[in-house]
Each structure stands twice: as structure tokens, then as C-alpha cells.
Design a binder for these strands. Structure first.
Length: 892
RNA sequence: GCGGAUAUGGCGGAACUGGUAGACGCGCUGGAUUUAGGUUCCAGUGCCGCAAGGCGUGGGGGUUCGACUCCCUCUAUCCGCACCA
């Protein structure tokens, strides 16, 4: 990447004469950008006053994890928010646009182990580096509200929330499974389990059951689901993903009798949950989870089964691992009786795809109606009885091949259900089983089930928010009284020993019980880092409050008007935040149930990857590229050795394909980076960072400066209303762009705004030159007006350049303080429109007609076209379709 | 495996509610200016064809006067799956 030619700093000083346009010096971002950033700071333009009475607008981007260095992948997201913030500010809103750090988490502990750095030092150093990098971008952020979630001030308030939640019954204890590394003696995250082995030790991972803290998010399942309907400013795909995640289903729980001779001692029944009771007559086996009580009991007397269950457990705790593994089962030898007295008894298998966490941990398998069950049945030679006949199929010959039939149809082979639809069969089965007495209670029960599980927040790690609870042998679980908070993390910890440093710290966990005064132990689990990010948006509304929030401030600002972040957070982070808003409302910290009114999920910045012959990754700066397109070749810039150009990937430290903001600001400037990242690709899509694209953006920045600075000394503000001809057209172009760009910003269509600004500059540049060369005051006023509009609509994207241009045009104050101009409705409307004329759906010509022209006259002018006459060749058209204001189509 | 998305020139993409496919930018080609080069300016640029014209939005099928847009189906790529953040 090369910089523009060396540049001397340019400031005002232009000739005062009405000479032809001179060529101004190049715009120098290295001088201008720091200058304007200082000016904004000194004027405190972006510090938000909670007492400001104007209408409020809260724009927030998902805060970053301080991993080390910011790359422009991060900054695209912040630039989008910044454009919104600057635009809303110009529109007269009191804008809140804060920034902070999602600062707890595993990487800090990994760094501690690898590099012998304290997680706290590593984290705060990274924050300092990244803050400095971010500031280069000229973002309009209220830095006075900055915090990191690892600040004691922040996690102190998080502990207050935890205690409140605990006392309100929103927190529970539950035994759940964790990945246990027997060599490192530690709990592993799913990402630390690779092919069932610990990432560091390589040991086979075991499952362990631990008593864990959970937030009772499932208490809100129905509300979280129903309220999605009201999140109208969220992308539909995210709403759909949340609905699917919550996973409400209506089904039937059915208790099956075990045949006494096969049942383990004391067991008489197996309860399953099904959403397809209509397929009951197609059932050919039962499948239970390896951890199902029945499986455990059966395994007790069957070593082979016990080994199979153990194998299932070693797959780890992640659903992905369970469900992508090949379907396997093991016959327990247990048999069940069909509730409707079908002649055969069904086998009970332990299956590796049945989850203990969902429903009852047991299913009945109907191979003809479920692909997974069919695969399983084929593998173990179980019967496949079709029970739903697809529409149009022949009952006598219909058979299931390799594909199950999950669709609608008519019930067959199903006794009293035959001839019904699956829907009515569902009710028939449910009604009948609800009335059958089975050991004193109905054998079947209609049930609503959610896939959503309670949120386990316990982590056996150091670098997180300590859970403020004390275990006392006398009193049980005792929350730390609020006046004894915060429970701070000890500094003197070592990461040399395996396990949780809080647990093996010599003194930290030993405390007296706040209730009875006897010796007791602190909880050594810390909270999931998702907790930290589930309420930071509320803390920003008053980041220095003694309590977690000032409810007045939180209620005034929330919900966030526009939240911007990656699609990868579409489910968990957003769902947890929605839960927190409800929990905080219930505990009096605010009165807003939905945290985010508008949501936008932006794409990532991707870059090519480069690999040396030895397989090592190279940074873009270390690579020299030759040739174009298919002939592009890469070489190691230092050695000249050939380098393989790899696919586009999300910028990441590990692939070394990152571009830092300083790489750009030192050459092209922040405005170029901001401009480029919002050009071309729609914001929800990924954008590829390319040097040529950045150069193109930079050329445009320089072009605007040339046009504005070249004309500025020769034009002044005035009354442009008498401008004629090209000058009047220029005014129309400017006002249309003003209207369009404003709308684009509100829809976050930054790429379209940029295209529109390009079009405006292309359209007006020659006319500006004419106005400068001429001596008509109205024309010069029109030029001044057009350029001022251009600068203002660019300002949210390229704020530094805009300030420089604004000053050149002779405006007082800064463009960052200027109100958004109103467009002139009369200049935006056109009297005539161009209508395309099609013949048989193919465009053959166009006609210009009055905007409100009558259908008949439009039809006549279309038929009069020479091309139309030629195509019709004297034959009358079959039909003429005139869509007013849109199109004419002639069917020949 | 389940859930969600995406696919348009050489490249990134535009096309609002079914109505001119390729806006805008990159790249490329030619020309002008200046220079040692870059810069800047003008013109051209979906494909085939001298032209008339024909063909074109991942593949196949359908609905419609008209389909990038709606329906069915197939393929490829990406995101999430509860302890990565």
C-alpha cells in the first residue's frame, strides 16, 4: 500500500480574485484528522447530557472483546453506528453513543498461562491499545461513559443484580454436565474440546456432573416468544431464529408400560414426549438418552450397555457433536407394551442422538414418519410401517424407501385412526389416552414443551465476575449482603496449577458466614461472560450510578433505538439480554422489558489469506502481488518466495489477514477507511478489503476536496432561486440527493447513500466549474448551496474531510454542529417522467410523458413509437398494458 | 444432524410492493494533459454478432402480459447450535 504523494499542509489562503479555478493542494488527512478530532473533543460535542430535553436517540454497537488489536473488521460496525449517530445528532436528537469493553473471558487466562501475564494487566493493556486505535477513526463516541466489564465498579453492580435476582427467585441451582479434562483437572469449554479430546492435554474428555447456578430464563419462555411479534425493527431472520431456538411445541406425553419380565427392578413405565402422537401405530422402537434413569439402571447389570453409555458421554456436551455423530443405538433388552394393544412389544434402545435435556429424555421412534428414526430402523433391522399415506399415493402399493414421509396425508395401518388426517388423528389419540387410567393417572397428557433451557451461568474460571454467594454448613447458600459487596477477584493468583485459581487460592474462599458467623466458603464459580454483556446497554445510561442503574435514566434512554452487531449474536446474546431486561424490570432496576427496539446485523470484513510454502500464514503487508484476476500471483515481499493466495476469510489474528486502522490512517486517513467500508457491499453483507478499493475511495475523497476547495474562494452563499438551466438542474440534483441520502441513512443503506453521492458529484462537477468561471451571483449561490449540501450529506461518513470543506466554504461553526438541511420539495419533484415501452415483455423503447398523463394518451404515444410500429408490422396489438408511472407493455 | 441465510458482468454490487437487469465503484481499453512514474481529465466496457438482432441474474421446471424478485426442485458457500466472544 502506498501513500499519496507527500503533501504540505494546506490551510485556507486562496486568491480573492475571480480567476479561473485553481488546482488546490491535496487534502492531507494526517494533518486534518487529528486537528478536527481535537476540535470535537474540546467542544465536547459528543458528550451526552441526560438532562438534555430534546428527543433522545440511543445508538449502540456491540462492544468489543479486548483481544489485542482492533482491525478494520471491528471498525466497520462502529462506523455504521457513527453514521447513524452523526445523522441523528444533525437532525436535532440528543444522541447517546457510548463505547465499552467486554473484558472478561478465557483468552486472558490463556494468555496468562502462555506468557505469564496477569489476566488483568493483559486485558487493560489491550484496552489501552485498542482505545487508541479506535480513536483514530474519528468516531463520535461519548468516551466519558466508557467502562470495561472487568472494572470492579461494573462487576460490583452485576453482583448486586445477581443478589436481587436470587432473592426474587430468578436464580436456581441445577446439576448439569461439563466437559472434564482428567489430565489438566479442569472444565473445558466446547471450543476446547477437539474430537472428544482436551485441546492442551489431548486426554479423552469425560463428562462430570456439577451443581451449577442457572438463571431461570425458561420462566419467561412464552413471553420471550410472544414478544418477538412486537420487535418490528428486527430482521425477520433473527426473529425466526429466536422463535426456533425457544422452540415451542404442542405435543403429548405418553407413558408406556414396561413388560414386567424385561423391566429392571422397581421400574414399570417409560414416559416419552411426542409432537406426533398421530403416528403412534407406526412406532417400532423406543430410544432413550444414555443418562436416562432407565438406561443407568439397565447398564448396571449389562457391562456392554454400560460401555456404550460411556461412549455416548465421551462425545462431549455440545449438541453439534451429538447430532452430527453417526446414529448409534444399543438394545437394553427392555420391552414396552403399545398403549393401543398392538400385538408386538417394542424394544427400548439407548441412542446417541436422544438428549436428556429435552422433554423426558426418551422418544418413540416412528421410522416411516421421521428420517432419523428411519435411518435408525434400517440400521438395526426394525419394522417400518407406513402410517401416513401421501396425497395421491396408492394405499395398496405405498411403501417407504430411503425417505420418510413427514408431510400431510391420510392415516393408514392405524386402527381407529384410519382415514383421518394427521391433525385429527393427533386429537383422537390425545383424547383417548387422556381418558385411559394408567396406575391411577391418565396415560397421556397434552403438553406444551419448549426447547429453551435454563441458562447455566457457572464457570469454573478466574477471569470473570465472582458469584456473590457463601456456602455455609449451617445456613446453606447465603447471598453476600449488599453492604459487603463487591466480592473482588484476588490479584495474587497463579495459573501454574491446574484447576480454578479461585478454588486453590490459599485464603480467598475462606470467610465467615454473614448469617451465623461460622467459618464458611465463598462460591468459587464466576459468571458466564454473557452475563456481563446482557445489561451493559443499561449501565451506559448512567455508568457512574451507585446502583446498577438509575431507573430514571434507564427508562428515559431504553430501549436502544438502533443496536448494531454481528449475526453470530442473533440468538444467545440477544435472548439473554431480553431475559435480563425482564429480570431487571422485575427487580426494580428499570421498567423496560425489551432492550433493543431496532436491530441491525452487519456483515464482516473479509480479506484474502496468504500461506507460505512452509504452511505459515503471512500478513497482507508481507506479501507482494503481481498480475490481475486469474493471473494474480503472490510472493513473499522479503524473500521473493512464492505464496499461495487463499480464500477470503473473516479477519482474524490466527490467519494473520488483518488490516489495522493505523495501516489506513497513516496513508489514506480514517475518512477513506470509513468511506470504503460502507461502499459497495450492503451493510448486512460481508465486504472484502482490497487495496484497490481503498485507493478508489481515497481518490473520491481527494476529488471532493478538489471540487470544493477549487470553487470555494470564488463562490459565496446567497439566493440561488434565480439560477437557470444547468444551474437549476444542479440545484435539483443536490436536493434530490439530500432527500435520498437522508432516507438511505435512516434505512442504514450506506452503500446506496455513497452511490448517490458519487452520482451527485458526477452530475454537478462541470456545472460548478461553469459557475466559478461565470459572474452570475445566483449561479454562484446555487454552486455554494449544492456544495454545502454535498458536504453535509457526506459528513456522517467522512466527518474530517467534511469539516475541512465546510470551513473552506466559509461556514461558521463545525459541520458536526450544523443542523441537517431540509430539502425543497419543489426541486425534488419532476414534471415529466420517462416510461419504458416493452413489446412482449422486452424493452424496445421509451417515451417521455407528463407525470400525471392519462392512460390513453400514454398508450397512443407508445404505439406511435417507430420501433413499436416496426415490430407490429401493421398488425393490431392483442393487448396493451399501461401501468401508470411504471411501464407500457404491448402484447403482439 | 437441526435451524438461519446467500448465489446477478473480469470483480464488489444496484434494481423500493412482480414492471427499463447491470446504477455506483473497482479493473480493463483507447485518447488528452503532465510527468521519470503515479496523479488528473475525456470516451468506451454483460456476452455473441459487421449489422439487424439474439442470449443473459448458480442449475432444472412452473405461475404471469411481464420474474433477479413468486412457487417447486437441485447444487454450492456461509452463520448459529447453549462453556468462544
Amino acid at each position: 500500500m502506498h501513500a499519496g504523494a507527500p503533501i504540505s499542509s494546506r490551510m485556507a489562503a486562496q486568491p480573492e480574485t475571480s480567476a479561473p479555478m485553481t488546482t488546490p493542494e491535496r487534502y492531507n488527512p494526517r494533518a486534518s484528522e487529528p486537528k478536527w478530532q481535537r476540535a470535537w473533543d474540546e467542544a465536547k460535542l459528543f458528550e451526552t447530557d441526560n438532562a438534555d430535553p430534546r428527543p433522545r436517540y440511543y445508538v449502540l454497537e456491540m462492544f468489543p472483546y479486548p483481544s489485542g488489536r482492533i482491525h478494520i473488521g471491528h471498525t466497520r460496525n462502529y462506523t455504521m453506528g457513527d453514521v447513524v449517530a452523526r445523522h441523528r445528532r444533525a437532525m436535532g436528537y440528543n444522541v447517546l453513543h457510548p463505547m465499552g469493553w467486554d473484558a472478561f473471558g478465557m483468552p486472558a487466562e490463556n494468555a496468562a498461562m502462555q506468557n505469564k501475564v496477569h489476566p488483568r494487566d493483559w486485558t487493560y493493556q489491550n484496552i489501552d491499545t485498542m482505545r487508541a486505535q479506535l480513536k483514530l477513526m474519528g468516531l463520535s463516541i461519548d468516551w466519558s461513559r466508557e467502562f470495561a466489564t472487568c472494572d470492579i465498579d461494573y462487576y460490583h453492580r452485576q453482583q448486586m443484580l445477581f443478589v436481587d435476582f436470587l432473592e426474587s427467585g430468578l436464580v436456581g441451582r441445577r446439576v448439569s454436565k461439563v466437559n472434564w479434562d482428567p489430565v489438566d483437572q479442569t472444565v473445558l469449554a466446547n471450543e476446547q474440546v477437539i474430537d472428544g479430546k482436551g485441546w492442551r492435554s489431548g486426554a479423552e474428555v469425560e463428562q462430570r456432573e456439577l451443581a451449577q447456578w442457572v438463571f431461570r430464563i425458561t420462566d419467561f419462555s412464552q413471553d420471550l416468544l410472544d414478544s418477538i411479534d412486537n420487535l418490528e425493527e428486527w430482521p425477520d431472520k433473527v426473529r425466526l431464529m429466536q422463535r426456533n431456538w425457544i422452540g415451542r411445541s404442542e405435543g403429548l406425553s405418553i407413558r408406556w408400560a414396561l413388560t414386567p419380565e424385561t423391566a429392571p427392578d422397581g421400574e414399570t413405565e417409560l414416559e416419552v414426549y411426542t409432537t406426533r402422537p398421530d403416528t403412534l401405530f407406526g412406532a417400532s422402537f423406543m430410544a432413550i438418552a444414555a443418562d436416562h434413569p432407565l438406561a443407568r439402571k439397565a447398564a448396571g447389570s449389562n457391562p456392554d450397555l454400560a460401555a456404550f453409555c460411556e461412549k455416548c458421554r465421551r462425545m462431549g456436551t455440545s449438541v453439534t457433536a451429538l447430532e452430527t455423530a453417526e446414529k448409534e443405538g444399543f438394545d437394553t433388552g427392555i420391552r414396552v407394551r403399545h398403549p393401543f394393544g398392538v400385538a408386538w412389544d417394542l424394544p427400548v434402545y439407548v441412542a446417541n442422538f436422544v438428549l436428556m435435556d429435552y422433554g423426558t429424555g426418551a422418544i418413540f421412534g416412528c421410522p416411516s414418519g421421521d428420517q432419523r428414526d428411519l435411518d435408525f430402523a434400517r440400521k438395526y433391522g426394525l419394522p417400518v410401517v407406513p402410517v401416513v399415506l401421501p396425497p395421491g399415493a396408492d394405499a395398496a402399493s405405498f411403501a417407504i424407501g430411503d425417505e420418510a414421509w413427514t408431510g400431510n396425508g391420510t392415516m393408514i395401518n392405524s386402527s381407529f385412526l384410519d382415514g383421518l388426517t394427521p391433525d385429527t388423528a393427533f386429537d383422537a389419540v390425545a383424547d383417548r389416552l387422556e381418558s385411559v387410567d394408567f396406575a391411577g393417572t391418565p396415560q397421556g397428557k397434552r403438553q406444551v414443551q419448549f426447547k429453551l433451557r435454563d441458562w447455566g451461568v457457572s464457570r469454573q474460571r478466574y477471569w470473570g465476575c465472582p458469584i456473590p454467594v457463601i456456602h455455609c454448613d449451617n445456613c446453606g447458600l447465603v447471598p453476600v449482603p449488599k453492604d459487603q459487596l463487591p466480592v473482588t477477584l484476588p490479584d495474587d493468583v497463579s495459573f501454574d496449577k491446574p484447576g480454578n485459581p479461585l478454588d486453590h487460592h490459599p485464603t480467598w474462599k475462606h470467610v465467615d458466614c454473614p448469617s451465623c458467623g461460622n467459618a464458611a466458603r465463598r462460591e468459587t464459580d464466576t459468571m458466564d461472560t454473557f452475563v456481563d454483556s446482557s445489561w451493559y446497554f443499561a449501565r451506559f445510561t448512567d455508568p457512574h450510578a451507585e446502583t446498577p442503574t438509575d431507573p430514571n435514566a434507564a427508562n428515559a434512554w431504553l430501549p436502544v433505538d438502533q443496536y448494531i452487531g454481528g449475526i453470530e449474536h442473533a440468538i444467545l446474546h440477544l435472548l439473554y439480554s431480553r431475559f435480563f431486561a425482564r429480570a431487571m424490570s422485575r427487580t426494580g432496576h428499570m421498567a423496560v422489558d425489551e432492550p433493543f427496539k431496532g436491530l441491525f446485523t452487519q456483515g464482516m470484513v473479509v480479506h484474502e489469506t496468504y500461506r507460505a510454502e512452509d504452511g505459515g500464514w503471512l500478513e497482507p503487508g508481507q506479501v507482494r502481488i503481481e498480475g490481475h484476476d486469474a493471473n494474480r500471483k503472490a510472493f513473499d515481499a522479503a524473500t521473493g518466495a512464492p505464496v499461495t493466495i487463499g480464500p477470503l476469510e473473516k479477519m482474524s489474528k490466527s490467519k494473520r489477514n488483518t488490516i489495522g486502522p493505523e495501516d489506513i490512517t497513516q496513508s489514506f486517513g480514517a475518512d477513506t477507511a470509513r468511506w470504503f467500508m460502507l461502499s459497495d457491499s450492503p451493510p448486512e453483507r460481508d465486504v472484502e478489503w482490497t487495496d484497490s478499493g481503498a485507493e478508489g475511495a481515497h481518490r473520491f475523497i481527494q476529488r471532493v476536496w478538489r471540487v470544493v476547495a477549487g470553487a470555494a474562494p470564488m463562490i459565496v452563499a446567497g439566493d440561488p432561486s434565480d439560477a437557470n438551466g444547468a444551474f437549476a438542474s444542479m440545484r435539483k440534483a443536490a436536493h434530490k440527493a439530500l432527500k435520498g441520502v437522508g432516507e438511505d441513512f435512516e434505512r442504514l443503506a450506506f452503500n446506496k447513500a455513497i452511490a448517490r453521492i458519487h452520482e451527485l458529484v458526477n452530475a454537478i462537477a462541470p456545472t460548478i466549474e461553469k459557475a466559478v468561471d461565470g459572474d452570475n451571483q445566483a449561479d454562484k449561490a446555487a454552486a455554494h448551496e449544492a456544495l454545502s449540501i454535498l458536504v453535509q450529506i457526506m459528513a456522517p461518513i467522512a466527518p474530517h474531510l467534511a469539516e475541512e470543506c465546510w470551513m473552506a466554504l466559509g461556514h461558521e461553526d463545525m459541520v458536526a454542529q450544523a443542523p441537517w438541511p431540509a430539502f425543497d420539495a419543489a426541486l425534488v419533484a419532476d414534471d415529466t417522467i420517462v416510461l419504458p415501452v416493452q413489446i412482449n415483455g422486452k424493452k424496445r423503447g421509451e417515451i417521455e410523458v407528463a407525470r400525471d398523463a392519462h392512460k390513453d394518451s400514454v398508450e397512443q404515444s407508445a404505439l406511435a413509437l417507430e420501433t413499436v410500429q416496426r415490430h407490429l408490422d401493421g398488425i393490431a396489438p392483442k393487448k396493451v398494458i399501461v401501468v401508470p408511472g411504471r411501464i407500457v407493455n404491448i402484447v403482439a
